Amino acid sequence: MMAMACVRKFRFTRPLFHLQWRYYSLQTKSERPTFGIAFDIDGVMLRGRNVIGGATQALRRLFKDPSNPTELRVPFVFLTNGGGLRESERAIELSNLLGVYIKSCQVLQGHTPFRKLVNRFGDELVLAVGKGEPANVMSEYGFRKVVSMDEYASSFVNIDPLAQYKSCANQLSSHNKDLLSQLEGDVDITNTHVHAAFVVSDPIDWGRDIQVLCDVLRSGGLPGKSGGHQPPLFFAADDLEYQAAFPTVRLGMGAFRIALESIFNRIHHSALTYTSFGKPNATVFKDAEIVLQKISSSIGSETTDHPKISNAENFPTHEIKSLYMIGDNPPVDIFGARQAGLPWFSILTRTGCFSGEGNHADFPADLVVDTVEDAIDYILKKHSKEYL
């Protein structure tokens, strides 16, 4: 399922200061809200590790006590194509950066749907590519024979012809070394076919990763051999660009996919086949809707961590009539919400990939605002009568 078990305890690493609750606030009543919110992260809430404007104040308005933002009043999730960390780790990171308590079940990353493929590849050797800890992420999902690109490339002598020029070549983290030693106890990597490759997050060493992926994919799963069908290839997302700390947008995983596909198709007789997850796929928004319904159903219950959200098919759900996607990337966030259809309503901010006047010409949003604060103000005012 999409959501993970929520972290039971968390302590903020910086104090939460009392902030005046500005604008219109929801009235405190027993009724659960009939709406939910999905936030993009990069370009809406953060630029790099810096909070954008009043993002923290906006989020605090969704808690019962804005001065102590730990108990939700309005269900919301972070729906991002980014990744590289486990959802529980990303929740802690976001909690510290944004100054509110975020549970792991509220973090839906580009690679979160990979969990659905465990039944297919859980016992096979799979390759995990990208920044952060891609093998750890996949292992958390239940993949039992997963190896990261760093680990995999280091197992083949001379597979990366430029390794000698890289100062950090073959330097694995202690955690990755532990995973590799456990894996090598059961699997001889250099003599075992890779059954699937997963691009979990943005790759760091494009040259090496394109080279090794081409080796794996054109050989049937074992570099140095010839023939065989291309193993399945999965991308966590297909963003061409995204907003990071630099003033102009940066190339994303979609750019890496284009580079890999272009090269592979020039050197192989058959075109590259792959599957991309993440926004703007409609299934991602459907998964987010299910999670928001379950979070809404848990609001006001005695338990605060809701461990059953991620794995109980018969978990009671509360009807949500309106869902809001707040994003900065028109072809990803806005197109995805519009493609998903009702009850989704798209809100475009001018704090990231989009900063123009008016609406986006090709992927128009239902509403365009300057900041996420403006978006929250609009939503809460629109639904204020439900709580009067």
Rank of each mutant, 00 (worst) to 15 (best):
M2T: 10
C6W: 08
L16E: 14
L26G: 07
R32I: 08
I37G: 00
F39A: 07
V51S: 05
G53C: 00
T56N: 07
Q57H: 11
K64S: 11
F78I: 05
E93H: 12
L97I: 13
S104A: 06
G110P: 00
G122V: 04
K131H: 15
E133L: 10
V137T: 05
M138T: 02
S148G: 09
A153Y: 06
F156K: 06
V157N: 13
Y165A: 09
K166Q: 14
A169G: 07
S174Y: 12
V187R: 13
F198L: 04
V200A: 05
D205A: 13
C214H: 08
D215I: 13
P223E: 02
K225W: 12
G228I: 05
Q230T: 15
F235T: 01
F235K: 01
A237C: 06
A237S: 05
A245G: 13
A255S: 14
A259V: 08
S262R: 03
R266C: 13
S270L: 15
T275M: 08
D287F: 07
D305P: 13
F315Q: 08
L323R: 00
D333Q: 01
I334R: 02
I347G: 00
T351W: 03
D366C: 07
E373S: 09
D374T: 03
Y378H: 12
L380T: 03
S384A: 14
